[in-house]
Amino acid sequence: MTVPNLPAVRQNRPAWNKGRLIGQKRPLHPKHVWAIRVRLEIAKAVQNLALFNLAIDSKLRGCDLVRLKVTDVYAAGQVKERTSILQSKTQKPVRFEITDGTRKTIADWLDDPLMIGSEYLWPGRFHDRLDISTRQYARLVRDWVSSIGLEPSAYGTHSMRRMKVAEIYRKTGNLRAVQLLLGHTKMDSTVRYLGVELEDALAISESVEM
């Protein structure tokens, strides 16, 4: 007697993304940035404040931000005003500014005893890792946004990368400038990254009253 081929019965499992907000993460707004800064300053969290400020200024991917070395931002006894690094994803250089406030917080962090002899700007806590991991950085971002009452699942490390360029685009509409600042090789990537068409459409819709 031939046994028919029956479909395999699998145990029902909840979807991996059940209850999660997936897709592109929202950029932080200026009011969020200042709220987080104030909390970090009050807590005297020197490393976190320097990391938070440089994440916004540099607009780097998390994988590049955590791998920064002291020499990338510091030379001749002072923090650089501008610097350039090679992006790990594209192997293309990207240049960014380091603003006055960020330079001060980095200088304060470099004076910390924990930084004595450290090659990396954000040294790891374990002997087998010289720098913090992207997962550690993601946890910090989650803690930062949670501390000011934001929904952590709506934000991530790319919220830090997008924050400044989203403001630049909103104020100037200059996509080419945003492309250069993000280190994108193609304009299409910048358009998708910013969600330009959707943001423009929403802005137009909001301006029309019925």
Rank of each mutant, 00 (worst) to 15 (best):
T2W: 03
T2S: 03
V3Q: 10
N5V: 14
N5R: 10
L6G: 00
P7W: 00
A8W: 01
R10S: 05
R10W: 03
R10A: 03
N12L: 14
R13K: 11
R13G: 01
P14K: 07
L21S: 13
Q24S: 12
H29I: 04
H32G: 08
I36K: 11
I36F: 10
V38Q: 13
E41V: 07
I42H: 12
A43N: 09
A43D: 15
A45M: 03
V46E: 12
A50M: 02
F52S: 05
N53T: 01
L54E: 01
L54T: 05
L54R: 02
D57L: 02
K59P: 00
L60F: 07
L60G: 09
G62N: 07
G62Y: 05
V66M: 11
R67Q: 15
Y74G: 03
L86T: 14
P93I: 06
V94G: 02
R95Y: 00
R95F: 00
T99N: 12
T99M: 13
R103D: 10
I106S: 10
A107M: 15
A107V: 00
D108Y: 05
W109N: 09
L110P: 09
L110C: 07
Y120C: 12
G124D: 12
R125F: 07
H127N: 13
H127M: 09
D131G: 04
S133F: 06
T134K: 11
L140A: 12
V145G: 07
S146F: 02
S147F: 08
I148Y: 03
L150N: 10
E151A: 13
Y155T: 03
Y155K: 06
G156E: 09
H158K: 06
M160S: 01
M160Y: 01
R161K: 14
K164R: 15
Y169E: 05
K171D: 15
T172M: 11
A177I: 09
V178R: 04
Q179H: 02
L180E: 15
L181N: 00
L182S: 06
K186S: 14
M187Q: 13
T190I: 05
Y193F: 15
L194C: 07
V196M: 10
E197A: 13
E199R: 15
A201V: 03
I204G: 00
I204D: 13
